[in-house]
Each structure stands twice: as structure tokens, then as C-alpha cells.
């Protein structure tokens, strides 16, 4: 059986909220190392890869590998019943029809129990190779969100160019052009505000802003976001979670002249 207890329901609520507009039905693959999810959007342009490591739960028990096929809209309805600070426990049998969710508020001695019906999902899995990216940029997640939202007002696409001097986001639209350049900067007192650039070669790629703005719904999960780029490979956008868990998004580039 599976039994996984999260100190705060907040984490799962935010993760599901961040991905539910991108992917609808997906398997939560549970094994002794944790709970993983990989799913592509309908157009096969963006991919979500989530890993909640066993260490992120306390306790965590998973006797047999089990795939929990979940409709995220339905899961959202159930998670709405959990307060952010509730203790959340996920439970499932070895061959489950339902996922049992328990929310506990230790202050008020309230215990809520929900069973979510599971579904059989035949999910395509993609092998994601380990990649040495040409450019890795770390920046505040709210800054990245602001840039994507601002540029989307002008255009559907953004060009991202990185050099040792900085990272430039630019777009061209019917009403005009826009560009935001961030230079590396270190703030000792507020390390969350740092912009860090590691570069082995310059990169220039174009991406759909609609997807990037969607990824930015995860900004509440982490104060910083990591962008990993290499020419002509999908962009990796990573939100690191506590206990080396993560929420990653991959986005195929736009290719052409």
C-alpha cells in the first residue's frame, strides 16, 4: 500500500494548481523513492515532470509500485477542501480504484476524508536525456513571470538570448517591440533576488509565450526559477522544492528563420 504524509497540504495544492491547465489526466507514479508525474500537453509542445521525493513526506511508505491515474480537475475539487496548513495524507491500496486523501487540522481536531475515483490512463512517456546545457540561468520566479506576462501583451513568441553579459528576452508584435535584459547580479542580503548566469556558449532560441506564462503559475512554489538552454533543444524551466523534489517544465522551441 501507499501512505504518504505531507506536513502541509499547501505543497500539493500549489503543484496541482500549477499544472492543471497544461495537463488534464495523468498518472502519479508511486514507488519507494517517491511520487513522480510526467505528462505532455495535448499539442505535445510542453511537458511537465514532477518529482516529490520520499524525503518530502513524513512518513512515506510505498510497498509496491503503483500508478494512480488522476483527473487533475477532479483532484483540484477535492484539494479545495484542504486548508493550506492542513496535514495531508495520501493513501492507496496496491491495486487501487480510489485515492484516499485525509486532511487534518491539529488545532481544531478536524479530520476530513475524501476518496477520489482513479482512472486507467495509458500515458506516453518520453525519455529525457541528461543534458549539459550551454546556459543555465537562475532568477527570481516573480521576475520571470513579470517578463513573460509583459511581453505576451505584445507578441505570441519570445526570443531568449544569453551571453556572459546577460539574458535578453525580446519580442516583436503588431503594436511594436519589447525587450528585457537581465544582467548577472548578486545581492548578499537577498540571495533570492540574484540573477546568476552560467554559460559555456551563447544561446538564442524562440519560444511560445503562452506556455511560458502557464509555467509561471508555479512561481508560488519557489522564490527562484532555473532556466536551462542549449541551441535547438527544449528549454527546461525548473522550480526546486524542499527535499530535492522538483517541478520541471520542458518546452519545445520554435524553429525557422
Amino acid at each position: 500500500m501507499l501512505e504518504a504524509r505531507l506536513e502541509q497540504a499547501d505543497l500539493l495544492k500549489k503543484v496541482v494548481d500549477a499544472i492543471k491547465d497544461l495537463v488534464q489526466d495523468c498518472n502519479f507514479d508511486c514507488n519507494d523513492s517517491g511520487v513522480a508525474l510526467q505528462a505532455m500537453d495535448n499539442s505535445h509542445v510542453a511537458l511537465v515532470s514532477m518529482m516529490l521525493k520520499a524525503e518530502s513526506f513524513s512518513p512515506y511508505r510505498c510497498d509496491r509500485n503503483v500508478a494512480l491515474g488522476v483527473n487533475l480537475t477532479s483532484l483540484t475539487k477535492v484539494l479545495r477542501a484542504a486548508q493550506n496548513e492542513d496535514i495531508l495524507t495520501l493513501k492507496a491500496e496496491d491495486a487501487p480504484d480510489v485515492l484516499n486523501l485525509v486532511f487534518e487540522n491539529t488545532d481544531s481536531d478536524r479530520l476530513s476524508e475524501y476518496d477520489l475515483k482513479l482512472m486507467d490512463i495509458d500515458q506516453e512517456h518520453l525519455g529525457i536525456p541528461d543534458t549539459e546545457y550551454a546556459a543555465t540561468i537562475s532568477l527570481p520566479s516573480v521576475e520571470f513571470r513579470r517578463i513573460c506576462v509583459d511581453l505576451m501583451a505584445l507578441s505570441e513568441s519570445v526570443s531568449i538570448e544569453t551571453s556572459k553579459d546577460g539574458i535578453k528576452f525580446s519580442c516583436a508584435g503588431d503594436i511594436g517591440n519589447g525587450a528585457v535584459t537581465l544582467r548577472p547580479n548578486t545581492n548578499v542580503e537577498k540571495p533570492d533576488q540574484n540573477v546568476e548566469i552560467e554559460l559555456t556558449e551563447p544561446v538564442a532560441l524562440t519560444f511560445s509565450l503562452k506556455y511560458l506564462v502557464n509555467f509561471c503559475k508555479a512561481a508560488g512554489l519557489s522564490k527562484t526559477v532555473k532556466l536551462c538552454l542549449s541551441n535547438e533543444v527544449p528549454l527546461l524551466v525548473e522550480y526546486a522544492l524542499a527535499g530535492s523534489s522538483y517541478l520541471r517544465f520542458y518546452l519545445a522551441p520554435k524553429i525557422g528563420d
Partner: peptide, 14 residues
């Protein structure tokens, strides 16, 4: 104009 690539062009199904 540029064309949107799909993920399968980069990642192989397993």
C-alpha cells in the same frame, strides 16, 4: 516565420 516544434523531435518515447 518560425514553426512550433514538438517534443518528440527531441525526446524519444519509451
Amino acid at each position: 516565420t518560425s514553426q512550433q516544434a514538438r517534443l518528440e523531435g527531441f525526446f524519444k518515447p519509451i
